[in-house]
Amino acid sequence: MHDDVPAAGHARHLPNFREPVTLAKDLMTLDDVSGGRVTLGIGAGTSSGFDATVYGGEPWSARERTERFGEMVGMLDRLLTEPSVTAEGTHYSAHEARTIPGSTQQPRMPFLVAAGGPRGMRVAARHGQGWVTTGAGEDLTPEESASDVGRQVERVRSACADAGRDPATLHTVLLTGFTPDPLLDSVSAFEEAAGRYAAAGIDELVVHWPIPGTQFAADQDAFERIALAHTGGSR
């Protein structure tokens, strides 16, 4: 959670659902109507589950999914920063695609690139203002989880260095709800978890609103106390 940043919209997308040209135009519109307060969160998706099969086709292989992801992010970068784009990729193309009047945020909205493998981390290093991880799963202790996330941070920083980029310029984000931390049990539990992940190199925790009956279920009152403690508000 941020203490000093105003609420902003996050548009989350996977290559499974969009073509780059239409997605870029949708994002440009959101950027406009929000007054430049949208951040794009984008990841490669999975080879199973709803997002892989909703259109009725065969799921992509891990290789194809990763290839499409890199191509999608690179083309979005161009579409949202250049007045006219012509590009022919393996999976996606554009012919004199124009995003008029252009992005509200300049040179474009921030990209938060979710990646756990080396190819995805290279995409984050090249195009992302931020990198997102969900950790390594729930079959660990909280301390083991933080250590694993720390190793992921080291790998994405290495990808930045390999790309000739200062690793300190890449914002690091943990999307919570997929680690063993009971961070929404209380304010103190949240702060303990936040401290562990900060020490591991994470700049920001993204917390789901409690949804009963799901893996994101949590006590609403505790959630609100945590939110208020870290935004300076009052009930």
Score class of each variant (00 low, 15 high):
Phe190Asn: 00
Phe190Ser: 01
Phe190Arg: 00
Phe190Cys: 01
Glu191Asn: 10
Glu191Trp: 01
Glu191Gly: 01
Glu191Lys: 05
Glu192Leu: 04
Glu192Arg: 10
Glu192Gly: 00
Ala193Cys: 12
Ala193Asn: 02
Ala193Val: 06
Ala193Glu: 02
Ala194Arg: 12
Ala194Leu: 00
Ala194Ile: 01
Gly195Trp: 02
Gly195Cys: 01
Gly195Met: 00
Gly195Asn: 01
Gly195Ser: 06
Gly195Thr: 05
Gly195Asp: 03
Arg196His: 12
Arg196Asn: 06
Tyr197Trp: 06
Tyr197Ile: 02
Ala198Asn: 04
Ala198Glu: 13
Ala198Arg: 14
Ala198Cys: 04
Ala198Ser: 14
Ala198Ile: 00
Ala198Trp: 04
Ala199Ser: 12
Ala199Glu: 14
Ala200Gly: 05
Ala200Ile: 09
Ala200Val: 05
Gly201Thr: 08
Gly201Tyr: 11
Ile202Thr: 10
Ile202Lys: 05
Asp203Arg: 06
Asp203His: 14
Asp203Lys: 09
Asp203Trp: 10
Asp203Val: 07
Asp203Cys: 13
Glu204Ala: 04
Glu204Thr: 15
Glu204Pro: 00
Glu204Trp: 03
Glu204Asn: 03
Leu205Ile: 03
Leu205Cys: 07
Leu205Glu: 03
Leu205Ser: 02
Val206Tyr: 12
Val206Asp: 02
Val206Thr: 12
Val207Glu: 04
Val207Met: 09
Val207Ala: 08
Val207Arg: 03
His208Asn: 13
His208Thr: 04
His208Gly: 05
Trp209Ala: 11
Trp209Gln: 12
Trp209Gly: 06
Trp209Tyr: 15
Trp209Ser: 11
Pro210Lys: 09
Pro210Ser: 12
Pro210Thr: 11
Pro210Arg: 06
Pro210Gly: 10
Pro210Val: 10
Pro210Leu: 12
Ile211Glu: 12
Ile211His: 11
Ile211Trp: 09
Ile211Val: 15
Ile211Tyr: 05
Ile211Ser: 07
Ile211Gly: 00
Pro212Asp: 14
Pro212Gly: 11
Pro212Glu: 14
Pro212Thr: 12
Pro212Met: 13
Gly213Lys: 06
Gly213Ser: 09
Gly213Glu: 11
Gly213Ala: 10
Gly213Asn: 10
Gly213Phe: 10
Thr214Lys: 07
Thr214Leu: 12
Thr214Arg: 07
Gln215Arg: 15
Gln215Leu: 13
Gln215Met: 14
Gln215Phe: 11
Phe216Cys: 06
Phe216Gly: 02
Phe216Ile: 07
Ala217Met: 08
Ala217Leu: 03
Ala218Asn: 08
Ala218Ile: 08
Ala218His: 06
Ala218Thr: 07
Ala218Cys: 09
Asp219Gly: 11
Asp219Ala: 10
Asp219His: 06
Asp219Ile: 07
Gln220Ile: 10
Gln220Tyr: 08
Gln220Ser: 10
Gln220Gly: 09
Gln220His: 14
Gln220Glu: 15
Asp221His: 10
Asp221Trp: 01
Asp221Val: 14
Asp221Tyr: 01
Ala222Lys: 08
Ala222Phe: 07
Ala222Asn: 12
Ala222Met: 04
Ala222Gly: 06
Ala222Cys: 10
Ala222Trp: 06
Phe223Asn: 09
Phe223Lys: 04
Phe223His: 14
Phe223Asp: 08
Phe223Val: 09
Phe223Tyr: 15
Phe223Thr: 13
Phe223Arg: 05
Glu224Ile: 11
Glu224His: 11
Glu224Gln: 13
Glu224Cys: 08
Glu224Val: 13
Glu224Pro: 00
Glu224Ser: 08
Arg225Ile: 03
Arg225Lys: 13
Arg225Gln: 15
Arg225Trp: 01
